[in-house]
Design a protein around this nucleic acid. Sequence first.
RNA 1: GGUCCCGUAGCUCAGCUGGAUAGAGCACAGGUUUUCUAAACCUGCGGUCCUUGGUUCGAUUCCAAGCGGGAUCACCA
Length: 596
Amino acid sequence: MISAVLFLENIISNAINTLYQISDEKVQIQTTRPEFEGDYTFVTFNLTKKTKLSPERLGDQIGSHIQIHNEFISSFNVVKGFLNISLSNAYWLNYFSEIKSYKQFGIAKHNSSGKTIMLEYSSPNTNKPLHLGHIRNNLLGFSVAKILEANGHHVIKVNLVNDRGIHICKSMLAWKKFANGQTPQSTGLKGDSFVGKYYVEFDKLYKSQITQLISEGNSKEEAEKNAPAIKEAQQMLQEWETGNEDVIALWKTMNAWVYEGFKETYKMLGVNFDKIYYESNTYLLGKEVVNYGLSKNIFYKKENGSVAINLTNDGLDEKIVLRSDGTSVYITQDLGTAIERFKEFPNLSQLIYTVGNEQDYHFKVLFKILQKLGYEQANECYHLSYGMVELPEGKMKSREGTVVDADDLIAEMIITAKQTTQELGKISDFNSDEAQQLYKTIGLGALKYFILKVDPKKKMLFNPKESIDFNGHTGPFIQYTHARICSILKKANYINNNIVLNAETYQLHSCEKNLIKHIYTFENALTEAAKEYNPAIIANYCYDLAKLYNRFYHEVNILKEENTSIKLLRLDLSNLCGSVIKNAMALLGIEVPEKM
RNA sequence: GGUCCCGUAGCUCAGCUGGAUAGAGCACAGGUUUUCUAAACCUGCGGUCCUUGGUUCGAUUCCAAGCGGGAUCACCA
């Protein structure tokens, strides 16, 4: 069965051709606003000039023409220049009977597009635990991967762990100074937050030394540069690079603690990766690319020996790609890593980087340089840029302790879910494992939905004082709708049937029709979400569907409907809604319970 | 200063490539359960879509300028 919108576009296009001999008219259909009668609307204003007819006249003529020639057009009306068209009851019943037993309605088959996409996300530093900003990154990356897969692409999820550098050395140094040999095991702390503690300790020490130096008459810059703590950290980084055994051993130990911690957090968030890269393995990549760029005169050596590229003709600035001492800068390794991936996966259709919008400029530069170096894949690189999560008082800052810790927040969400569930008292038959699982599902559902319902491009506000809601436009609302559907189906001992109601005798209830129409738009939402890399489209789709279902639920009888055929239709419809909700929420990484 | 992003109800957000009287949730006021899960449903209240111009039959949407907020422009990552 052809889609409703395409169907209408075709017949209206034909009508315009027949009536006015205009063949190249782009026909655009929109959904009819609820205050008017009709399913879809065609706006006639664009045709007034070519036909010299009034918008009303055009609406009447086109409306009559398509109604006469198509059995599925049941009626039309014209308001000003808007031609509102109603599709017949039979159309929607046929459509529904066709899709109602799909288990994966709207979801493309695995790898059906033939495209392989690499998507990088998460990419944490290993000197401190994850915070709310990382949560947004992880949820966004994971969800976009799911959405791309549901569009038929093969997605390779990768994580590039920033496991080396001055920040790690800071934690290491502070641990050596202050820990007296303590470990996560000895303190009972989670590994990443244990290490993070020493990162904060370092900063305290560093700051106090700066204050001291300034009070002794040094300038702020001098003090920041010469404080013993930072000198020691830099020294340690050099030792790391030269392979000092003790430093390497400590580095391995502390990173291992952090990984233990991250593992737990990732597990709670339900995210995962197909491949993990470590920067300690990739940070030297890119140096030979610099030589290649020099030989092609794309890069040039500056007087002091550093290597740069001039991008001023591209609206960007001059960019250093190698330090005067021959060591890499950030972009050097990014160039190297990208090229390495092109080699490793020669048939990659796309390479996506999930990184905050503070790095918009960096990625513009990176892609531009790749392009200048002659890598055609540069055109398929995409920066999935997302806005910062802000607190009421502004940006979160790790060192100032104004961050919302990921583990703390998750734990709070689960506790709130537990309290709410217990107050409502609907799961007395659950054992404690089942109950615990449910609290987790609901708590994380609330958190994930809260994050993903916002357009990724936009910055978002999180107020720790106002806990994340469980009512209204939320994850638990949608989960609740799913549980409600399951409850009905269970009570009915539902099994998918093949009964189709006779369109002559059964007039769909407006709530039923609205549900079918909205389910119809799922495929569109899914392609749109992939095109825009935007899970919020799916999130909002789910909410609208759940809302329509609840309306339907309150308006009509399902189990108590006496006419068996109608009852079965409503059960079928409930079943389909439930499975679409479940599949769509899975694209957000959100589970839906069968009872709550 | 250059570049980029953002500005919609008291708050948090939708608004598809320009279309009809701009929508939700929270909050606030009220109503719905001897009946399928009330984490629900319904009603009400709430708006110079930052401002001013321009394009258009039509602009929250496109363009320009201004105001306000943010990011970025390192031999940091």
